[in-house]
């Protein structure tokens, strides 16, 4: 398709080549579009329609009744879970950004064997999500390695516990999603030309000024990506709350899971999912308006 158009070819063939070139982007995009349509658009509409259906509790046969009652009920009954999810997910994302930025910065600008440290960062990913989280349950357990020792040394009261608190859930999420934060940050920082930082130093910017005025603004797309890739799955997560949070720290993900699998209340589960999605989309749209149109430069 990239061959030059040969003038000695019959007109029809040349036209074909030109048509091919015009079609190329669509053809290249086709597999991805098909994939999206099949595994994203269709399920999404299925979900939305399911939330407007009414199901027989015994046979589980559902019918579209345009019954919108699930939505107010979901908000009324579970708004606390939404808030908690955003709180845990948000806190975990902030923790991840704070931890991952220096880490990514160090690997991008200072480390000698970058690929080694990137591998170290990714290594926990080779272990199943659930197993990793279970390990944290073991580490944080009331009489476990850390708390047990501290209690034996009388540094902590006997009834002190971390498990089954919001702290444990937040920490678990932060731990599990750290690479999602670190990798986009690393990519953004790695792309910064060190000569630009030299220019900043040449123009009287101290190290901290150069960081504030050059490194940070250039890293903003990476920060944005890191935030998205961490915050969105973190808010919807249910594994950490299940394993580390006990019964009183459940998140929306848990409710959805329960409604779906335990109570087979498909319309309610779908409504909850739809609301979560809407909340996240609105939040992200606002957030990208702020970060997208302005740079740190204009804030300071």
């Amino acid at each position: 398709m990239e061959q030059p158009v040969r003038s000695d070819l019959p007109v029809a063939e040349r036209k074909g080549a030109r048509l091919g070139r015009r079609l190329a982007p669509y053809l290249l995009g086709a597999p991805a579009s098909l994939w999206l349509a099949l595994f994203f658009v269709v399920p999404m509409f299925t979900m939305l329609s399911l939330s407007l259906q009414t199901c027989d509790p015994v046979t589980l046969a559902c019918r579209l009744t345009w019954h919108v009652g699930e939505f107010p009920q979901a908000v009324g009954e579970f708004h606390a879970y939404f808030l908690r999810s955003i709180q845990y997910g948000g806190a975990a994302t902030v923790i991840d950004l704070v931890v991952a930025f220096p880490l990514a910065y160090w690997i991008a600008f200072r480390a000698r064997r970058k690929s080694f440290f990137l591998l170290m960062l990714l290594l926990p990913f080779f272990v199943s999500f659930v197993i990793r989280t279970l390990t944290w349950q073991f580490i944080l357990s009331d009489q476990g390695l850390i708390l047990g020792t501290l209690k034996n040394l009388h540094l902590l009261p006997q009834d002190f516990h971390v498990l089954a608190t919001g702290w444990a859930v937040t920490a678990g999420i932060a731990y599990n999603f750290l690479p999602f934060t670190a990798l986009p940050l690393y990519v953004a920082l790695e792309r910064i030309d060190p000569r630009v930082l030299e220019a900043a130093a040449d123009l009287y910017a101290s190290r901290s000024m150069a960081f504030l005025r050059v490194t940070l603004p250039l890293a903003i797309p990476g920060i944005f990506a890191a935030f998205l890739l961490t915050f969105v799955p973190a808010v919807g997560d249910f594994v950490n709350a299940t394993i580390l949070g006990g019964t009183s720290n459940l998140m929306v993900g848990n409710i959805i899971q329960n409604k779906f699998l335990l109570f087979t209340d498909y319309p309610a589960a779908s409504a909850l999912s739809a609301i979560l999605m809407a909340v996240l989309l609105v939040g992200i749209a606002l957030y990208s308006r702020v970060l997208g149109s302005r740079t740190i430069e204009e804030y300071v």
Binding site: A201, V214, L218, E297
Partner: peptide, 25 residues
Amino acid sequence: LPPYRRDVNTVFQSYALFPHLNVFE
């Protein structure tokens, strides 16, 4: 002495312009 403490400016062979700032900035 670090560069930012020297009353010297450089026109770099590779320009090294700030990609996130416009010409004025």
